[in-house]
């Protein structure tokens, strides 16, 4: 059989079209409710949720082995522990550091997504799967994420994780409140947006799982735009730092006593 050029082009064209429509149909039909978009895509206008971390308080407990925030986060957000620590998702982690000028002083610093105002991940995401809500929370729409990992590369804080395995397969208990992430997509700390939305609806102060779990009250969560909130007052009163501020990303996570 001889195929001439035109026929060849026709065949490849048709094959591409079939593949294309197939993928579109797949995307459209994939409306599994637990994997669906975060229900409130917007958040509330005018709010800006943020966190203040008191490193001194954290060090007090963490140096004794406390990892309550990490455990609470895993439980709340269905995060499994994988065999390989280099691939285990960590939405919040505690790192041990020493001051360059005074190495007798050990500090334990919790690291999590900084929910930047000018978030590099949102900038680089080719499909707008990473987005910033009106209330400042940066989220990933796992339904839209193609798993290219450009955001992980771009994030100055290493806050993002690739889902190497389907998390639900490895968990004994599952919290049905949080959106499911299948393997292949990128995930990270959400500031427990499901808790935030629920609390706001009920007129209460929102408390993410890590903040709730901290025995030293080293983590404070609140509205940075409200001058009367606990967090705003504390930021005004004390010397605070934000990580890699020179990049201009304007993080929403502040650190106190990080020296």
């Amino acid at each position: 059989m001889k195929i001439n050029r035109r026929e060849f082009l026709k065949i490849t064209g048709a094959a591409t079209l079939v593949l294309a429509t197939d993928s579109i149909a797949d995307v459209l039909s994939n409306s599994d409710f637990i994997e669906a978009l975060p229900a409130e895509k917007g958040g509330i206008e005018g709010k800006r949720w943020g966190m203040l971390v008191d490193v001194e308080k954290c060090t007090k407990a963490a140096s004794q082995g406390c990892r309550k925030c990490v455990e609470a986060c895993r439980k709340e957000n269905n995060i499994p522990v994988l065999d390989d620590p280099r691939r285990t998702p960590e939405w919040i982690k505690i790192v041990k550091v020493k001051n360059e000028f005074d190495d007798s002083k050990e500090l334990y610093v919790p690291l999590l997504c900084n929910h930047c105002e000018h978030a590099p991940c949102v900038q680089v995401c080719p499909t707008q799967a990473s987005f910033r809500r009106k209330d400042g929370i940066v989220l990933i729409d796992s339904h839209r994420c193609i798993g290219c990992r450009y955001c992980m590369v771009a994030c100055p804080y290493n806050a993002r994780n690739w889902n190497f395995k389907d998390s639900l397969e490895m968990l004994k208990e599952i919290n049905p409140e949080v959106p499911r992430r299948s393997h292949g997509v990128v995930e990270k700390c959400t500031f427990c947006f499901h808790r935030v939305d629920k609390a706001v609806e009920e007129g209460k102060n929102p408390v993410p799982a890590c903040v709730e779990a901290c025995p030293e009250k080293a983590l404070v969560f609140g509205d940075l735009n409200d001058p009367n909130s606990e967090i705003s007052k504390m930021i005004k009163e004390s010397r605070v730092y934000r990580l890699r501020e020179y990049l201009g990303t304007e993080p929403s996570v502040y650190y106190k006593n990080l020296r």
Binding site: V124, T127, G147
Partner: peptide
């Protein structure tokens, strides 16, 4: 990671990326 989502590249174009 999610090849079946690839067509989002054309549906939800991010001009800043």
């Amino acid at each position: 990671g999610k090849p079946e989502h690839a067509f989002n590249l054309f549906f939800h174009f991010n001009f800043r990326s």
